[in-house]
């Protein structure tokens, strides 16, 4: 996977499996301290201590169709390649938090890529989860919250393709905007 947004999609599938109905994705770009941070927080079923100690092992998986589970392992590797780290904390019945730190300017730090594609796929999921996406670039912030969009939509489903296209463009432009140099 050559984009961080692909890893995010993959990790969020775990949250969906854990019956989360809210996933928070927080991206912090701190160029001053050379940090690129991704937090994924869900309110799913959580894990006990034993499971938690095993998830980063590529040969651990909860599924029956195959006996490897590479999602977390690959994400961890992507972080460690940049002298960063991946940390998971979890509480049963409360949820799980996956925190990943990358070195911002490290040559092996993958770009975020098409995060709007990741988010729309999460929104199209059958389980109707809410997504709260926050992207911080130094002191500028973009927020995308499906709860707010839901209010405006007033019963029109997210699966309406005009809505999906609007969401995609909104995220794309929002992220470009926070990266713009301030013009005086």
């Amino acid at each position: 996977m050559n984009e961080l947004s692909l890893h995010i999609l993959d990790i969020c599938q775990n949250s969906i499996k854990a019956n989360a109905d809210l996933i928070e994705i927080i991206i912090t770009e701190d160029t001053i301290n050379n940090i690129y941070k991704i937090d994924i927080i869900d309110n799913g079923s959580g894990m006990d201590k034993k499971t938690l100690s095993e998830v980063a092992d590529p040969f651990f998986t909860t599924r029956a169709t195959r006996n490897v589970g590479l999602g977390i392992s690959l994400f961890k590797m992507a972080a460690e390649m940049t002298d960063g780290s991946l940390e998971i904390t979890s509480t049963i019945n409360e949820g799980t938090k996956v925190s990943t730190i990358f070195q911002y300017n490290h040559i092996d730090r993958a770009p975020l890529g098409d995060i709007e594609d990741t988010l729309t796929i999460l929104i199209l999921n059958e389980n109707m989860i809410d997504i709260y996406y926050k992207h911080i670039y130094n002191n500028k912030i973009y927020i995308f919250d499906t709860k707010e969009i839901r209010k405006i939509l007033d019963g029109i489903p997210f699966t309406n393709y005009d809505v999906i296209m609007w969401i995609k463009n909104n995220i794309k432009e929002g992220i470009i905007n926070i990266h713009k140099e301030e013009s005086i």
Binding site: Q13, L70, D117, T118, I121, L124
Partner: peptide, 23 residues
């Protein structure tokens, strides 16, 4: 299919293309 295997094989652009075409 959108698990780790699907994503790394390119399922995300595939799904997006479906969405775009249908729209």
């Amino acid at each position: 299919g959108m698990a780790t295997c699907g994503i790394s094989a390119g399922a995300r652009p595939v799904m997006n293309k479906f969405v775009e075409k249908i729209a």
